[in-house]
Design a protein around this nucleic acid. Structure first.
Length: 221
DNA sequence: GGCCAGGACACCA
DNA sequence: TGGTGTCATGGC
């Protein structure tokens, strides 16, 4: 069984500290979490830049935009029609149930806040956990494609394990600390992104026996 | 010009 | 429960 703390220490020594998430407010974190769904972060930055220039980075301002106007602002992030709907559904929910304040939703106990986010259309487990962790400072471990790739190659995860299984596995073996989960996820992404640049498929380059980096990270047999 | 990126959902067997 | 198609843009 992989020593998750050892992996963390090695990643932190190589890349850290990273201090995620790049955003000025909790709501901006949530915007980014939705916009980055299956999308390169650079495209998300362009879309957020457009929203910032339009002064639309609050639930109130964003919900007052017409759907078409919002779609055009976030167009660089791709999937702009469904993401515009998802953003405005989140805003509508916050205004109806939390006085238009994401912070109020995030002041609840972790699992309650998570259930509320997950019931919203367009917010799945990874997006919810990113919002909880990076906007709410709540200890919810984020599992993304990079997490799966890295730990499958390290022999820690099997293919086709469910999101919830993986999340629970990590949370059961790490202290429930938001700052740790925050940095750990950021390090996993940073590690995979750097190594992905050298090969077209990250799964073939940064993981497992064919990858020097992954071999170095793996604990001795 | 093809492939990929910090997912989620609807639909089907 | 698990597999597949769809959504779409910009960088490499």
């Amino acid at each position: 069984m992989t020593d998750l703390n050892d992996v963390y220490q090695r990643l932190a020594a190589a890349y850290g500290p990273l201090h995620w998430w790049p955003a000025e407010t909790p709501f901006e974190v949530a915007i980014g979490a939705i916009l980055t769904q299956n999308t390169n972060w650079k495209n998300v930055e362009m879309a957020i830049g457009n929203l910032r220039r339009a002064q639309a980075l609050t639930p109130q301002a964003l919900s007052e935009l017409s759907r078409d106007a919002l779609e055009q602002l976030i167009r660089p992030s791709g999937f702009f029609r469904q993401k515009a709907e998802r953003l405005q559904l989140l805003c509508a929910y916050l205004q109806t149930h939390h006085q238009g304040r994401l912070e109020q939703l995030l002041r609840q106990p972790l699992e309650q806040a998570r259930r509320e986010l997950l019931q919203l259309k367009g917010i799945g487990p990874e997006t919810a956990d990113s919002i909880l962790l990076y906007a709410g400072d709540l200890p919810s471990f984020v599992v993304d494609a990079y997490t799966r790739r890295l730990f499958e190659r390290l022999g820690e995860l099997r293919k086709n394990q469910s999101y919830e299984q993986i999340r629970e596995r990590f949370m059961a073996r790490l202290p429930a600390a938001a700052d740790l989960y925050n940095e750990y996820h950021a390090l996993i992404v940073e590690h995979c992104k750097r190594l992905c640049r050298t090969r077209p498929r990250c799964g073939d380059c940064c993981l497992g026996a064919i990858c020097r980096h992954a071999r170095r990270l793996a604990p001795p047999a």
